[in-house]
């Protein structure tokens, strides 16, 4: 096997007091892919996701990022290594301006984040880069809006811009189109497609339309275990998968 995996799990298990939420999951995310993690409600997608991003600690198993064992690292550490996650509900800083949201992500690299004696004007050097990122997600004209006043779809776009600011090698998106209207879904899909160039993306997603048109590879989870894995055409033909979704998807 000479394939290049950015993220790999080996026998990942998470137990909550007698209940196994994630059961022996071996996941391999290839570099440059958009990899989707799907499954019916309660299949353990989000738990799996939280394990990968270290917000939960696995009971057994290993997680490898670029071949390095990160099973015991903290969420802060893996973010610094270039693995950045998003959240199911939009993760923005609601009472800060849109520009500030992106600047907060950019600011870490300046190395002055503990400098409480410095003026915040020392952060103005980041404004151009922040504006460029906002431009990329069509938010430039919202730059000085207080984030909480933006519509939901825009907040998700902002979240994406904030994540991009860290120039992550691997982006983990937790249901990027959840709770969105049709138009917003299309916009976010186009955005994900755009930013996926030169990056690896792992996403949890409910919307099969999104999954089918974006992802290179799909892993289907059911009751915490991997049901099947492969490209969309292959997975969607699998009778077990169809059953799991109870025919709700006629593709």
């Amino acid at each position: 096997m000479s394939q290049d995996f950015v993220l790999e799990t080996q026998g990942l298990i998470k137990e909550f007091k007698g209940f196994t939420a994630v059961d022996d999951v071996n996941l391999q995310v290839q570099r440059g892919h958009i990899h989707a993690l799907i499954g019916p409600n309660g299949a353990g997608k989000t738990t799996c996701f939280n394990l990968l991003t270290k917000f939960l600690t696995p009971t057994h198993g290993k997680i490898l990022f670029n071949g390095t064992d990160i099973t015991r690292q903290s969420p802060t550490d893996i973010a610094k290594m270039g693995m950045v996650r998003s959240f199911q509900i939009s993760a923005v800083f609601p009472h800060l301006s849109v520009l500030d949201n992106v600047r907060i992500a950019l600011q870490r690299k300046l190395g002055t984040s503990f400098h409480f004696w410095k003026s915040e004007r020392s952060l103005d050097v980041l404004n151009d880069r922040a504006m460029a990122l906002l431009e990329e997600v069509d938010l430039a004209k919202w730059a000085d809006t207080v984030t909480v006043e933006m519509p939901y779809g825009r907040k998700r776009a902002l979240e994406l811009a904030t994540t991009l600011a860290l120039e992550p090698e691997l982006m983990l998106l937790d249901e990027p189109t959840q709770g969105m209207g049709h138009e917003d879904v299309e916009r976010v899909m186009a955005l994900i497609k755009k930013v996926s160039v030169g990056r690896t993306i792992l996403m949890v997603e409910h919307n099969l339309h999104v999954v089918s048109s974006l992802s290179d590879r799909i892993t289907v989870l059911q009751r915490g275990a991997v049901l099947t894995e492969g490209p969309y055409e292959e997975v969607s033909r699998n009778p077990q998968v169809r059953e799991a979704y109870m025919g709700s998807e006629a593709a």
Partner: peptide, 11 residues
Amino acid sequence: ENEPRAVSLGY
């Protein structure tokens, strides 16, 4: 404003 997000940004 949002502690988990700050963590995920590497702080």
